[in-house]
Computed example of a mutant assay.
Amino acid sequence: MAISKGDTVHWNTPQGTTEGKAVEKKTKEFHLDGQKFNASDDEPYWVVESSKSGKQAAHKESSLS
């Protein structure tokens, strides 16, 4: 599945499936909320914004649907 900025995406959390918006694709190492993420061209991450809380988080592209 190809994801584009602004797309609605879903991901799993301990509380169940969460829905949000794809904000930015990352393909290089980056930090978000004090956490380091090792993104690459082969394993990109997306910064997503939760529809419920409005908070941002980073998820591997492969974990989003």
Rank of each mutant, 00 (worst) to 15 (best):
T8V: 15
S53D: 09
A39Q: 01
I3A: 11
S62K: 13
T8H: 13
P14T: 12
S51L: 06
E19N: 10
K25W: 00
S4H: 13
W46S: 12
I3P: 02
G54K: 11
S4N: 14
L32V: 04
D41M: 02
Q56P: 02
D33N: 15
T18W: 08
W46K: 14
G34Y: 09
T13D: 00
V9E: 01
Y45K: 04
M1E: 12
Y45W: 11
K52C: 01
D7W: 06
S65M: 04
S40V: 05
E29R: 15
K26F: 05
G54H: 07
K55I: 01
N12D: 13
Y45S: 02
N12G: 10
Y45N: 06
V47W: 02
F30T: 03
K55F: 11
A39E: 00
D42F: 09
E49I: 06
T27C: 08
I3C: 08
F30S: 06
K36W: 00
S65I: 01
Q56Y: 02
I3Y: 02
S62A: 14
L32N: 09
W46D: 09
T8L: 13
E43Y: 10
H59E: 08
S53V: 07
E24G: 03
T17L: 15
G16S: 08
K60P: 04
M1F: 09
N12M: 14
Q56R: 14
L64E: 03
L32A: 09
V47C: 10
G6M: 08
D7A: 12
A58E: 02
I3S: 05
H31P: 00
L32K: 07
A39P: 00
G34S: 12
A39C: 01
K36N: 09
Q15R: 15
G16H: 03
G34W: 09
E43Q: 10
N38A: 07
T17K: 15
D41V: 11
E29I: 05
S51H: 15
T13W: 00
V48G: 03
K60Q: 06
S50T: 02
D7K: 10
A22H: 08
F37Q: 00
K52T: 09
N38T: 05
P44K: 00
Q56L: 03
A22F: 05
L64T: 06
K25D: 00
N38D: 12
D7Q: 06
V47D: 02
T27D: 05
A2V: 14
V9M: 07
A2I: 13
V23W: 00
V9D: 04
T18G: 00
K21V: 15
T27S: 10
A2Q: 15
G6T: 08
P44S: 02
A22Y: 02
A39F: 01
L64W: 06
D42V: 08
A57P: 04
K25C: 10
W11A: 01
K55E: 10
K55T: 06
V48H: 03
G6C: 10
K60L: 14
D42G: 15
S62V: 02
G16M: 06
N12I: 13
D7Y: 05
K28Q: 13
E61Q: 14
T27G: 04
T13S: 13
P44E: 00
S4I: 06
A39W: 00
V9R: 04
Q56M: 07
G34R: 11
K21M: 15
A22W: 02
D42W: 07
S4R: 14
S62G: 01
D41Q: 12
L64K: 11
K5T: 11
